[in-house]
Amino acid sequence: KELVLALYDYQEKSPREVTMKKGDILTLLNSTNKDWWKVEVNGRQGAVPAAYVKKL
């Protein structure tokens, strides 16, 4: 499985998103959308802005 690093804090704004903190390591589930990537963090799945994460 592919991992990404959170470059910034992000507070979810809808139920389809997830909150992450700078430095979090997230499991990347889907990166086909260039703006929003689906990730899993702390057992929750949701979208985060692609510009806020970097593939490891």
Rank of each mutant, 00 (worst) to 15 (best):
T19V: 04
V48Q: 00
L3K: 11
A6D: 01
P49V: 03
A47H: 15
K13H: 09
M20Y: 02
T27G: 05
L5N: 01
V18Q: 03
Q11Y: 14
T32N: 13
G43V: 03
D24S: 07
V39N: 01
P49L: 05
T27W: 12
K34A: 13
V39H: 01
A47P: 03
K22H: 06
K21W: 09
V18D: 01
A51V: 10
L29C: 08
K54L: 13
V53L: 15
K21S: 09
T27M: 12
E12P: 14
W36M: 06
G23S: 02
K1D: 09
Q11A: 13
K34W: 08
K55Y: 10
K38A: 12
P15F: 10
K34I: 10
K38E: 15
Q11H: 13
L26A: 08
V4D: 00
L5D: 01
P49E: 03
T19Q: 04
L5A: 06
N33P: 06
Y52W: 07
E40R: 05
E2D: 12
G43W: 04
P15H: 11
I25E: 03
D35G: 10
V41R: 13
Q45A: 12
K54M: 15
L7E: 03
L56M: 10
R16A: 14
E12T: 10
A47S: 14
S14W: 06
Y10W: 10
A6R: 00
E40K: 05
T32K: 10
Q11L: 13
K38C: 15
D35T: 13
A6S: 05
V48P: 00
K34P: 14
N33Y: 07
Q45R: 12
G46P: 00
G43H: 06
K21C: 11
V48D: 01
K55G: 05
W36G: 02
G43D: 07
Y8I: 11
D35N: 13
N33Q: 10
S14L: 07
P49G: 02
W36I: 04
P15Y: 10
K13V: 08
A6P: 00
Y8M: 12
N33I: 05
R44G: 04
E2I: 14
K54E: 13
N30L: 08
L3I: 09
S31H: 10
Y8C: 15
L56E: 04
G43T: 05
N42P: 05
K22L: 06
G46L: 10
W36A: 03
Y8N: 08
R16M: 14
A6Y: 02
W37Q: 02
K54N: 06
D24I: 03
K54P: 03
N42Q: 09
D9L: 02
T27P: 12
Y10E: 00
W36T: 03
E2G: 10
L5C: 12
A6G: 04
N42M: 09
T32C: 13
Q45H: 10
K54Q: 14
R16N: 15
L3G: 03
K55A: 09
A6L: 04
V41F: 15
R44D: 04
Y10D: 01
A50D: 02
E2S: 12
P15K: 10
E2N: 11
W37M: 04
K22M: 08
I25P: 00
Q45C: 13
A51W: 10
V53K: 00
K22E: 07
P49Y: 04
V48I: 10
M20Q: 01
W37P: 02
T27R: 11
Y52Q: 05
M20L: 09
K22R: 12
E12H: 09
N33V: 05
D24T: 07
D24V: 04
P49F: 05
V41Y: 11
V48C: 05
Q11W: 13
S14R: 07
Y52L: 14
Y8G: 05
R16T: 14
G46W: 07
K55R: 13
K34H: 11
Y52E: 03
K34Q: 12
A50P: 06
Q11K: 14
L3F: 15
L28N: 00
K34D: 13
Q45V: 15
K1L: 14
